[in-house]
Design a protein around this nucleic acid. Structure first.
Length: 540
RNA sequence: GCGCCCGUAGCUCAGUGGAUAGAGCGCAUGCCUCCGGAGCAUGAGGUCACAGGUUCGAAUCCUGUCGGGCGCGCCA
């Protein structure tokens, strides 16, 4: 019994497909929790889905379905009832619940996971902020999101490479060098340069390293490297570790960009116009063609980006995920077009878009600009709110929604941050387990299988065994925010259980039975927090 | 004008075909001789932006309208 819900579902699926016979039609039946406890523990809509194909009333088909599963589910359910428009409601037995807890304990930290390495090799690229300044709060959202989906994919058995594309080439680095050189000379930074105060410190460090403001080539390498170093530090303090940093410059220097250009030129998808070379991305669904080589002879960002994506594939990625900001929302079509033009399947590429972070302070909006130097550094957010609270806060929202972050409010509320609700429940559990002493040893699955299950205990157990589905859905949709909602719900269910069901000192076999529930809940909460990249302290 | 995203409780947001739409914060009122009160309980608060359509069933899918964000460079 590795996944209790999956076993129930397979019994239903089997019966539904038997009833359906060789008629086609009907979506996959779902097993869900009814809105009210009186309607049972689980419910399936299989009969309603079959109704059109069979031309019979849903409730009659539900009766048929009930007959079909009554045998195979006899050990698991106390009752099966047809209800409402044609739902079949399942009332699982206490014993089934106890066995479900046992299944969670047996699976341990692997509960809800597929075997490591059983999935595809996936490259997850995220943050990839230009090495021209510190990470902003917005980058923090990218970091939290990218790391979480990487965790989720690993839970689904994928071999994941967390990757940062370092844009250490191009005009922005020239502007950075000019700005740093100005700082080194104590001159005003150029009009189109980076005015942020942080460059004063960078300039001082570079001077201490023996670099001269006149040494453009030296600074072109050293300045972005210095800034990337501090970006890495910020990421580390946020709990995000990358497996690889890929340098855009290296793609140019190694000839990878030139090779892409040659290959595309040899294809039928390139043409010359206005002195530039274009890629006919409109043939692959883009809304306008894109320049690959400027009339100056310089390759564009797109050319390098395509070289980068081919590089990922050549390093073994079967799928590529690029986490992009809303301001890069027009990129995916041109990348797909380029991949298709190069003969790769564009479906191997996915690009979730992270909407903007709207920062404010006490209700007043703060406009962010790295160029102008007006932005809130991620370091500052972490220092004031904490890495755990920041990550949880940022992962509560869907990536498709804008995130409003009021720093004053977040500071004031940090003690009320939902993350502590989940962590607190986990700490409570550990407090109970610490005090239980020998009690943990007494957990014997057979001995506790017949212990009655209280209503709030039943709710908690059902919540715990939803974890596999939550992981699967969150991974499939690249939506880790589902998981923070799940963590909150599981913590709330634990608190209700804690209120209603005394654990320590409960009579006879009730104590070990409830301790087993505590252990299972602790395991699920720790797992949920870990997937979100949030710590799970045993006391706080 | 075109493309992508969003519009759900006072605020911030979950909910991508199921039964009477949820959470956190805020507000009101209760709960510590009892395993951690960073907790629990109860309550007030909703035309799910609007209008059509699809179907047994729509906050969810389709079309249109309105409102907000982002983009529409031989920048990245």
């Amino acid at each position: 019994m590795s996944d209790p819900i999956a076993l129930l579902k397979s019994a239903i699926d089997e019966a539904v497909s038997t009833i359906r016979g060789n008629r086609d039609g009907g979506a996959e039946p779902i097993l869900e929790r009814p809105p009210k406890a009186e309607l049972g523990d689980y419910s399936t809509n299989g009969a309603m889905l079959l109704a059109p194909a069979l031309g019979a009333p849903p409730r009659a088909i539900a009766e048929q379905l009930r007959e079909a599963v009554v045998e195979s589910l006899s050990g698991s359910v106390d009752r099966l009832e047809v209800a409402g428009p044609g739902f079949l409601n399942l009332y699982v037995s206490d014993r089934w619940c106890r066995e479900a807890v046992g299944a969670v304990l047996a699976a341990g930290p692997q509960f809800g996971s597929l075997p490591p390495g059983s999935g595809e090799r996936v490259s997850v690229e995220f943050v990839s902020a230009n090495p021209t300044g510190p990470l902003t709060a917005a980058s923090g959202r990218h970091a939290a999101y990218g790391d979480a989906i990487a965790n989720l994919l690993e839970a689904r058995g994928c071999i994941v490479e967390r990757e940062y594309y370092n844009n250490d080439a191009g005009g922005q680095i020239d502007r950075l060098v000019a700005s740093v050189a100005a700082r080194m000379r104590r001159e005003p930074v150029p009009e189109d340069g980076y005015a942020g105060e942080y460059l004063v410190e960078v300039a001082a460090q570079l001077a201490a390293d023996g670099l001269s403001p006149d040494d453009h080539d030296g600074l072109f390498t050293a300045a972005p490297a210095k800034i990337l170093g501090s970006i890495e530090q910020t990421l580390r303090s946020f709990g995000v570790e990358f497996d690889s940093f890929v340098s855009e410059r290296r793609l140019h220097d190694s000839g990878a960009v030139a090779k892409i250009l040659a290959d595309l030129r040899a294809s039928t998808h390139c043409y010359e116009s206005d002195g530039a070379r274009w890629l006919r991305t409109t043939s692959f669904g883009d809304d306008k063609d894109r320049v690959l080589v400027r009339s100056s002879g310089e390759p564009t960002y797109l050319a390098a980006d395509l070289a980068y994506h081919r590089d990922k594939l050549e390093r073994g990625a079967e799928r590529m995920i690029s986490v992009l900001g809303a301001d890069h929302g027009s990129h995916p079509p041109r990348i797909r077009a380029g991949l298709a033009a190069l003969g790769y399947d564009p479906k191997r590429y996915r690009a979730p878009i992270i909407q903007m972070v709207q920062l404010s302070s006490g209700g007043a909006r703060a406009k962010m600009s790295k160029r102008a130097g007006s932005f809130v550094p991620l370091d500052e957010v972490i220092a004031e709110i904490g890495a755990d609270a920041t990550r949880f806060l940022m992962l509560q929202r869907s990536n498709d929604s804008e995130l409003e972050l009021d720093l004053e409010l977040a500071k004031r509320q940090s003690a009320d941050n939902p993350v502590y609700y989940v962590q607190y429940a986990y700490a409570r559990i550990n407090s109970i387990l610490r005090k239980s002493g020998e009690g943990l040893m007494a957990i014997d699955p057979e001995a506790i299988a017949e212990v009655a299950v209280e209503p709030s205990e039943r709710r908690l157990i059902k919540r715990l065994i939803e974890l596999p589905v939550e992981i699967e859905e969150s991974a499939k949709r690249l939506g880790p925010h589902r998981l923070s909602a799940y963590g909150m719900a599981a913590a709330a269910d634990f608190n209700a259980f804690y209120r209603d069901c005394k654990v320590l000192g409960a009579p006879d076999r009730v104590e070990p039975a409830r301790l087993a529930v505590c252990v299972a809940c602790g395991s699920v909460l720790a797992r949920t927090l870990a997937l979100l990249g949030v710590s799970a302290p045993e006391s706080m």
